[in-house]
């Protein structure tokens, strides 16, 4: 007997649906943007851990500036690069709460370098999520601190030249050397497998806060297909081929 789609689409057969912590507001990100996946995973993790009332998120300046429109928790919007300073104070004043920051590469690894390094070095008991797509998406595709050598951006249209522009910055390896960090990992979200791994990492980043043993830091190597001027699928392929060799995936530190 053939089973019809109608037979399958029944509440008892439901295996995946949108998190109830995601609001009805459509995300403003471009089609295929990694931000959407990571935003969604954060909502899922907070919902599954039952932490809606216990969590305060800090949003950055950049494409994810309006992230607070999408997840139904309390939020603070930081000035460009300052999210770790906000996170530090929120956690110190409300130590029983779960605090996370969400920042892009320009925010976390350029203008906010000092705040990033010092929050990690103090071992602030927070989770820092770092979206690295090697470009400034919001402002229209300029060179980021993490732009690869030779990679084109609107402020290095002929490719990043280390002699002129300096070298791409591996912030995640840097923070892993600091005694204050507890869990440092680099993940991606381009395949279902990568997404499932990233979700596990995020769960760990939240759960680690119960033990107050230092900062959890999760980099997500991401695409910016609009900025890279590719289709979403091409951008994923380009990322695997070009970004992963320089930004290899995996746990760097877990203590």
């Amino acid at each position: 007997m053939e089973v019809s789609i109608k037979d399958i689409i029944k509440p008892e057969n439901l295996v995946y649906q949108k998190s109830s912590l995601l609001t009805e507001k459509p995300m403003h990100y471009c089609p295929g943007c990694t931000h959407g996946v990571v935003n969604r995973l954060i909502a899922e993790v907070i919902e599954e851990l039952g932490l809606q009332q216990e969590t305060i998120g800090v949003t950055p300046v950049g494409c994810s500036v309006l992230l607070y429109n999408y997840i139904d928790i309390d939020w603070q919007e930081a000035a460009h690069g300052r999210a770790p300073a906000l996170g530090t104070a929120i956690k110190r004043l409300l130590p029983e709460k779960y605090v996370f920051t969400y920042q892009g590469d320009g925010d976390l690894a350029a203008i906010g370098t000092a705040e990033t390094i010092h929050a990690c070095n103090r071992g602030e008991n927070i989770l820092m999520v770092f979206i690295n797509n090697g470009i400034y998406g919001m402002t229209g595709g300029q060179m980021a601190p993490t732009t690869l050598e030779g990679m084109a951006a609107s402020t290095c249209p002929f490719g990043r030249d280390p002699e002129r522009d300096g070298n791409p910055l591996s912030m995640t390896e840097i923070v892993a050397t600091l005694p204050g960090t507890r869990y440092v990992t680099r993940q991606a979200a381009h395949t279902a497998g990568a997404v499932r791994k990233l979700k596990k990492a995020l769960i760990k980043g939240f759960n680690n806060q119960k033990e107050n043993k230092g900062t959890s830091f999760i980099e997500v190597v991401s695409t910016c297909n609009s900025g890279w001027k590719m289709t979403p699928v091409q951008a994923n392929e380009w990322m695997v081929e070009n970004m992963f060799p320089f930004y290899p995936l995996g746990d760097i530190k877990d203590k």
């Binding site: 439901l14 949108k18 995601l22 996946v37 969604r40």
Partner: peptide
């Protein structure tokens, strides 16, 4: 499909 969807558009059923 739902895992990689950036806009949480996909609901999945299985039996």
């Amino acid at each position: 499909c739902a895992m990689v969807c950036p806009d949480s558009c996909i609901t999945v059923y299985r039996m």
